[in-house]
Amino acid sequence: MSDLIFVPREEYGLLADTLGRLLPEPSSPPKDCKALWADLAQSGALAVGLPEDEGGLDDARAVSVVAEQLGKHGAVSPFVGSSAVVARLLAKLPFAAATADLRARLADGSAVAAVALLSDRPLHVTQAGGKFTLNGARRLVPFGAEADHVLVEGVSSDKSRLLVLAPKSSYRVERAVIGVDGCPYADIVFSDSAVGGEHVLGAGAEAERLWAWCGDAYLATLCADAVGAMTTLVRMTGDYLKVRRQFGAPLSSYQVLQHRFVDMDMALTESRTVAEWAAGLLDADDDRERRQAVATTHFTVMRAATKISQDSVQLHGGIGMAQETAVGRYFKRLLALPLIFGDEDIPLAV
């Protein structure tokens, strides 16, 4: 069977429906993170990216269907790092069999993995015998305090890269914070932390390649999440324009507002296109093709997210500023993308 991008598999509709019923209404306050995680595990959503014999669909596009629903319903969870990146990375590795048990725990929700995306501080790895020793820190790891494992990229004394899935016991959480997007982040510190060779997932050029995949997978999945959040903002704004009356007529009757709203929906339409494209190419053999799709998606979604979130508040008027309205929550959720990966200028600088 050839899988075509833009031709959804039947399973996607079922998956979206299941999650749509499971997750709280987009306008209601977010559910407790732990309870939500248990629900997601129960539904099988955490496994969809895994191979078929592990209960999944072996399909990055299915992962982005889940991410989109999470974004649409404003659900805060470690799904992107744990399920979309680490679990799938483990399944890709040549020694995948050795990590089957961990993947099963990531899929049933009993374990959570996170990704230390920011590499702005040194993280040194030295090797002696079969042991690796880590020294350094990672800042603002999403769900860093809650995770059981954190994926980090370190550097050895000869400047070569190492990809390490560090167990909780190997680092301490120095500072836990809540981000503007509602997601928890933590700084973690390694001091003479020894880990066994089984925690090292790759070295040298292979580590760099895998780490690049992780970044792209994280970014592409976050873009799918953003498509969900933008869908909600566009729907809320359209609904509001239809009911809010000023000067004796609904706002939706004013052309200046109609055209702004159409531009929001058009930006969402393009974002959905590129997000589906990037998801379809995440597992492509050709790294360059994947990179190009993800960069285009980053650019397109970033532009759309800024436009849609800002215009949603503007078109709601005063009520859009109120914390009791859900608009602001989605506005802030959409800030994760530029703050972590950079705004739309970043993919242009190549």
Binding site: K242, Q255, H259, F261, V262, D265
Partner: peptide, 10 residues
């Protein structure tokens, strides 16, 4: 945009 708005907003 008028055509699109009619379809989206009624």
């Amino acid at each position: 945009r008028n055509i699109a708005a009619k379809s989206l907003l009624g």
